[in-house]
Computed example of a mutant assay.
Amino acid sequence: MDFEQDQTDASQFQQYKHKLEISYRKFLDYITPHIIPRWIATYIIIIIFMGRILVVEGWYIVCYTWAIFLLNMFLKFLTPKIDPSLEQDIQNDSVEAGTNKMDENDEDFKPFIRRLPEFRFWFKTTISTIVAIFCSLFSIFDIPVFWPILVAYFIILFFLTMRRQIQHMIKYRYLPFDLGKTKYGSK
């Protein structure tokens, strides 16, 4: 008798889990095209988190870890899916081997495809901010540190990585944004 009851409880749980997954997917599908409202909601969550950190004057390690994670995600967002430096090395090796002779003026159009798409970047940013807020509720994560050093280290890290990324973008002539590009379509 208990075995049959366990089976029905398990199947009811599976049904409930399946309905919850379907609802979650519907919600994600619904909000996908609404880029600006999604980011506004995320910025509000970020402001709440930063306000909490400033008001309680603690959880600087949580904030630092969150900021490093966001920097990592931002770099993936700016980086092309196929690294042009690796592609150029492959082309150079094939030209040296004599298998592929390309003229220097022969450049194919290659659209910019991000390593981390915008939706995934938004999703990971939102989830990481919610996790950081959750972690800031527990005193176990409030490790005492001298926060100005963390801020200075993050600023240095940010400028060094962004300088390297911008040099990479200039060297391989790609622009991860649609600024100044021709738009076609109806007026």
Rank of each mutant, 00 (worst) to 15 (best):
K26F: 06
I40Y: 05
I44S: 06
A152T: 08
Q7E: 11
P80Q: 08
H34C: 00
D106E: 14
G185Q: 03
Y30V: 03
I143K: 04
V56A: 10
F69P: 01
D89E: 15
Y43K: 01
F141H: 04
V56G: 00
F121N: 05
L137K: 12
K81Y: 12
R52V: 04
L70M: 10
Q15P: 00
F154D: 04
I46T: 07
E87M: 13
F146E: 04
G185C: 03
F109I: 12
W39Q: 05
M50C: 14
T65R: 02
F3D: 13
S11A: 05
Y16K: 13
I149C: 03
Q167I: 08
C135I: 12
Y172G: 09
H18N: 13
I31S: 01
V131K: 05
A152H: 03
E57A: 09
Y43W: 07
T125E: 07
D106V: 03
D108C: 04
L157D: 13
E4D: 13
V145G: 00
L175R: 14
I61N: 04
V55H: 08
W122L: 05
D103R: 11
F154G: 07
E87T: 14
V131L: 12
I36A: 09
S136N: 13
I127H: 09
Y153M: 14
I31L: 02
T8D: 06
M1I: 09
T182M: 03
E104H: 07
P148W: 05
I156N: 09
I48F: 10
G180A: 03
A132K: 10
E118M: 12
T79P: 07
T129A: 15
N92Y: 11
Q91S: 14
L71H: 05
K110A: 11
R52L: 09
T42C: 06
P148S: 01
N105T: 11
Y184T: 01
G98L: 06
K171Q: 09
I35M: 02
V151E: 01
E57Y: 05
T32V: 03
E21N: 13
R38F: 03
R38C: 08
K81E: 10
Y64T: 08
L116S: 02
S139T: 15
R52A: 04
L86N: 14
T126I: 13
L78T: 11
T129E: 07
I45C: 08
K183I: 10
T8P: 00
R164N: 10
L71W: 02
N105Y: 11
P80D: 08
F69D: 02
I40P: 03
P144L: 00
P144T: 02
T99S: 10
I170H: 09
